[in-house]
């Protein structure tokens, strides 16, 4: 479990760096810098590929199959400390969770169910996100696709998403 968390963190760092590089690439007019950035993006991509394979191996060894919400047992007793910072424990890309919009709706953050939201096709876990107290955020409730809302309220703040654990894709 610990390893998976570490890999995820590394992946997230790389993704953030790649985003930043792409942004700079779009803005800069300096040819030399462009070359450098493209080179670094290639490197980043290789690293992500490597980490992805590693993650897939780890996941298949340590984790049972992904369970549907009706299989989740609500655990009301505070037996262990849940993670706050993004140290994901959810299975990742290799056996990526694919959720339909109906399935997503079940993750409303109530009665033991996790709180998920989708932005641009990616499903994020906001169960313990500090801006999502009681699985609500400025009048929005968890379990829905908020691509439009994110675009209108957090334009130019894509980096916000980098700190939120990813759980899968919306199909």
């Amino acid at each position: 479990m610990q390893t998976i968390g570490m890999i995820r963190l590394q992946m997230n760092t790389l993704i953030t760096q790649a985003r930043h590089d792409l942004y700079t690439l779009r803005m800069t007019t300096d040819e030399t810098i462009k070359q450098l950035l493209i080179q670094r993006l290639w490197d980043t991509l290789s690293s992500i590929h490597f980490l992805n394979e590693l993650l897939a191996n780890q996941a298949s060894m340590t984790m049972p199959m992904y369970q549907h919400p009706n299989g989740l047992i609500p655990n009301m007793v505070q037996t262990q400390i849940p993670p706050i910072t993004p140290t994901p424990e959810s299975p990742m890309v290799a056996n990526a969770i694919q959720l339909t919009i109906e399935e997503l709706a079940q993750y409303d953050g109530k009665n033991g169910r996790a709180a998920y939201v989708a932005v641009d096709g990616i499903v994020y876990d906001v169960t313990n996100n500090r801006a999502w107290a009681a699985a609500t955020h400025f009048g929005l409730t968890a379990g829905r696709d908020y691509t439009a809302e994110f675009a209108s309220c957090h334009a130019g703040q894509q980096s916000l998403l980098a700190t939120v654990p990813v759980v899968g894709r919306l199909v």
Binding site: M63, P64, Y66, Q67, L72, I73, P74, N75, M76, Q78, T79, Q80, P82, E89, S90, P91, G109, K110, N111, G112, R113, A114, A115, T127, A133, A134, A135, T136, G139
Partner: peptide, 15 residues
């Protein structure tokens, strides 16, 4: 809103 909720998930049962 809501101001007070008692049914928020506290711990997700680890898969």
């Amino acid at each position: 809103a809501p101001f007070i909720s008692f049914d928020t998930t506290r711990v997700v049962k680890d898969e």
